[in-house]
Design a protein around this nucleic acid. Structure first.
Lengths: 139, 139
DNA sequence: CAGGATCCTCTCTGATACTG
DNA sequence: CAGTATCAGAGAGGATCCTG
């Protein structure tokens, strides 16, 4: 930890290769996670499943604007990464329950850190956008 | 994600409206931040600028695979949100220095939380993907 | 040096219709 | 109920050329 900042984050403090090779960036697990949670619906689905398990249409009704297709894709992606568990009950009609795995639950903590930051600084960001979106300034 | 609420210690613990309205999801600051840092280059640029200020071509050379266009767009986006400061020196040839604002530096901490999680669980995720990507299972 | 302007491709997302 | 299949639009990202 060097510099004027008190707490420089540990993983981001490790020196990067210079230049950063293209494939190293592609394979970086941090890049990878960010691209997953950076999509439109993943975090919301994770948060809802963090409260309790949900069935498919329960999630569909619970997220007003999501399309059936995107809900399916989001859940499949999370399932493939081992963050969500999918359990099929052979009832009639069939029912499928989605829940967070322990791995998925563990993601809630760092996610909440980012959420806190976003909420804390949202007004500063909004103000900055407002100021910068003034092409007609007379200096 | 009701980020508009005032005192929220653990944002992800607060109950969500059910159903979550479409526009509330769009305006959610958490969604907003995630979509910014979820793009291809933003985090890497933030981390590099977190080490020290950089000039434009210095960043360009420092990130092997980035195109000039995307570097510009990434920096503009960060600048608009007030995370990056852009300073022009009227030399010949001109030089432009990019650096993190205090707001930008404050993002490094929650980002590092997510980075730690990603690094810690990357093998579990990779293994899960490996297992799930077997379309030809005979049970 | 630090971009802007164009053009092009590919992915993400949504809408709609159909099914075991 | 819990999806799959197909089509279409919007935007991200890249390549190339040009300029103050």
């Amino acid at each position: 930890m060097s510099g004027t900042n008190t707490d420089v984050p540990a993983p981001l403090d490790t020196p990067l290769p210079s230049p950063v090779p293209g494939d190293e960036h592609e394979q970086c697990p941090v890049t990878d996670v960010l691209r997953r949670v950076g999509d439109k619906w993943t975090v919301l689905v994770v948060v809802l499943l963090g409260q309790r398990p949900h069935r498919f249409n329960e999630l569909h009704r619970g997220i007003e604007a999501i399309s059936q297709r995107m809900l399916t894709r989001t859940l499949r992606g999370l399932e493939e990464d081992g963050l969500v568990h999918r359990e099929v009950f052979a009832t009639v009609p069939p029912s499928v329950q989605y829940s967070l795995t322990p791995l998925g639950k563990s993601l809630l903590k760092p996610l909440s850190g980012l959420a806190e930051w976003a909420i804390e600084h949202q007004s500063a960001i909004a103000e900055s956008r407002r100021v910068n979106n003034r092409p007609f300034r007379r200096t």
